[in-house]
Simulated assay, not measured.
Amino acid sequence: MRFEGGASSYLEVLDAERSLFTTELDLVETRRDHLQSTVNLYRALGGGWQNSLQSSDYENSD
């Protein structure tokens, strides 16, 4: 709106969009870390599930 009104340059618009993108990436990383922490907590408490794949299954999946 500021750019369209002539109060800001397009460079300022691009800088604001870059800042927004960086902040959105930080939010996604924070959400991922939270979910990973939740998984780690469940695993530490026993998890309630059994691992159906052995580590050798991952090595042979190439």
Rank of each mutant, 00 (worst) to 15 (best):
56 S>Y: 05
18 R>Q: 12
17 E>P: 01
56 S>A: 08
12 E>T: 01
60 N>G: 04
54 Q>P: 00
23 T>E: 10
42 Y>H: 06
51 N>W: 14
2 R>N: 03
18 R>P: 00
55 S>I: 14
44 A>R: 05
24 E>G: 04
27 L>F: 10
27 L>Q: 15
51 N>V: 07
17 E>A: 10
27 L>M: 14
36 Q>A: 12
21 F>P: 01
18 R>A: 09
56 S>V: 08
61 S>V: 04
7 A>P: 00
36 Q>R: 15
34 H>Q: 15
10 Y>L: 02
17 E>R: 11
35 L>Y: 13
9 S>D: 00
40 N>M: 10
35 L>S: 09
25 L>K: 14
28 V>G: 04
33 D>R: 08
40 N>F: 09
40 N>Y: 11
60 N>V: 08
51 N>R: 12
40 N>E: 14
6 G>M: 01
51 N>F: 11
15 D>R: 12
40 N>C: 04
16 A>N: 04
27 L>W: 11
13 V>D: 03
4 E>G: 01
27 L>A: 14
16 A>P: 01
30 T>W: 10
29 E>P: 00
55 S>Y: 09
27 L>V: 15
23 T>H: 07
38 T>P: 00
62 D>R: 11
20 L>Y: 07
60 N>I: 08
29 E>N: 08
57 D>T: 02
6 G>I: 00
44 A>N: 06
21 F>C: 15
42 Y>L: 04
41 L>T: 08
